[in-house]
Amino acid sequence: MSRIDITLTVNGEPRELKVEPRDQLADVLRGPLMLTGTHVGCEHGVCGACTIEIDGAPARSCIAHAGSCDGATIRTIEGFGDDEIMRALREAFTREHALQCGYCTPGMLVVGRDVVRRLPDADEARVREEMSGNLCRCTGYRGIVRAIVSVIVARRHARREGACR
């Protein structure tokens, strides 16, 4: 039951940590690693606030426990600085008033980026379906959905223009 040594690659940097196997990955990120952009909401995988990337795929950091993450590559909201899609999403969230208190926003952005990348032809209904695992208690979702759809549409136009040239 003692603490164990684990290695994570977090936002590109290798980190060696002493953790309890039961520690939630979210708490490891927010505590010893001081990456407080990952927000903890429901702690049972329903609200989506803690969504980050584990080994390149979006995942809940509240129901991934530290022991099982040994060796994993993690990207948190702090780790998307130079990412083109994330920059477009941030601008769209600002423009469309897609946040108020900001608690859900890191999870919204990580999942939104996955939707933009994975479903380049998604329409509004599909975006709503895909974002249904992220709860927002301020906005009523309209701005969030508009923001993500606007990035998808802009990328679709860019693709078409590229194809015409």
Binding site: G45, I54, P58, A59, A64, E130, S132, G133
Partner: peptide
């Protein structure tokens, strides 16, 4: 099944 970030694990 649930949501994509749950389905990935």
């Amino acid at each position: 099944i649930a949501y994509r970030p749950v389905r990935t694990r």
